[in-house]
C-alpha cells in the first residue's frame, strides 16, 4: 500500500489533496468566465479542476486509451520537442525519451486486452508524464491478468534490489539468454529503465476483479545532471 501512496503523492501532492474546491477555484484565472458560461456546471467544474490539477502537478501529458506504435511515436516526439525548448540536458532528454518508449511499448506489447486481441496487437492503458523541480515522472497503468501479478511483482522487486552492477549483469544475461516474445518484447525494458535512471521503480497492483488487476508503474528521471 505504501507504493500507492507514493505514486499518488507524485501526482497529487498533499497540499493539493487537502485543498477544498473553493481554494482551488480562487487560485487561477479566469474563474469568472468559467462560472458565467456554466450551462452544465458540474461538468465544467470537473474540466476546470482537472486543468488546475494538471497545471499544479506539472503534468505535461495525460492519456487514456489504446496505446499503439503511432501513439508511442507521437507522444515521444511531442515530449522531445517540449524538452528541447526547455533546455534540459541532452542526457536527461534522452533518458526521458527512452523511459517513455519502453513504458509505452510495454503496454502496446503486453497489455491484456481481450476485446482487441484478435483485431489488433495494441493494448490499452493510461500514460502520464510530469515535470517536477528536480525530476521527470513517467507513469503508466494497464490491466493485467491476476495470474501474471506474482511473476511481475517478483521481477520488479528483484530489479529494485539490485545496484547498477547487478542490473548490468542481469541485462546482459537476459539479452543473451532471453528470447523475443511473440509480440516482440525482450523482457529488458524494466531492467534498462532502472539502470538508466538510477532510481527504484515505483509500482503497485490494484485488484480490479477476480481475473484482472490494474498495474501502475512510475519511473523517475532525475533532472539534475550528476
Amino acid at each position: 500500500m505504501q507504493n500507492i501512496k507514493r505514486i499518488f503523492n507524485v501526482f497529487l501532492k498533499k497540499e493539493v489533496l487537502n485543498l477544498s474546491k473553493t481554494e482551488v477555484m480562487t487560485d487561477l484565472e479566469p474563474k469568472t468566465e468559467v462560472q458565467e458560461i456554466t450551462s452544465d456546471k458540474e461538468s465544467l467544474d470537473f474540466v476546470y479542476e482537472f486543468y488546475v490539477r494538471m497545471k499544479r502537478n506539472k503534468i505535461h501529458l495525460a492519456y487514456e486509451g489504446e496505446i499503439t506504435h503511432q501513439i508511442t511515436k507521437a507522444f515521444t516526439s511531442l515530449t522531445e520537442n517540449n524538452m528541447a525548448k526547455e533546455e534540459d540536458y541532452a542526457s536527461v532528454q534522452k533518458k526521458v525519451f527512452h523511459v517513455m518508449v519502453e513504458c509505452l511499448q510495454n503496454i502496446s506489447k503486453h497489455a491484456e486486452n481481450r476485446h482487441h486481441i484478435v483485431t489488433s496487437k495494441d493494448g490499452r492503458g493510461i500514460f502520464m508524464i510530469s515535470k517536477g523541480e528536480s525530476e521527470y515522472n513517467v507513469t503508466t497503468g494497464n490491466t493485467i491478468p491476476n495470474d501474471k501479478v506474482e511473476e511481475l511483482q517478483k521481477m520488479l522487486e528483484n530489479i529494485n534490489s539490485l545496484d547498477k552492477e547487478g542490473l548490468n549483469k542481469l541485462y546482459k544475461q537476459q539479452m543473451k539468454e532471453g528470447r523475443l516474445s511473440d509480440r516482440g518484447g525482450a523482457g529488458l525494458g524494466f531492467i534498462d529503465i532502472a539502470r538508466k535512471t538510477g532510481e527504484k521503480l515505483i509500482f503497485c497492483f490494484l485488484p480490479v476483479d477476480e481475473t484482472k488487476s490494474f498495474f501502475v508503474l512510475t519511473s523517475t528521471i532525475p533532472r539534475v545532471k550528476e
Binding site: K94, H98, E102, Q105, M175, L180, A186, I191
Partner: peptide, 10 residues
C-alpha cells in the same frame, strides 16, 4: 543515436 531494448537484443 538511439535504440530500444527490443532492438538491443537484435
Amino acid at each position: 543515436e538511439y535504440f530500444n531494448t527490443a532492438s538491443s537484443k537484435l
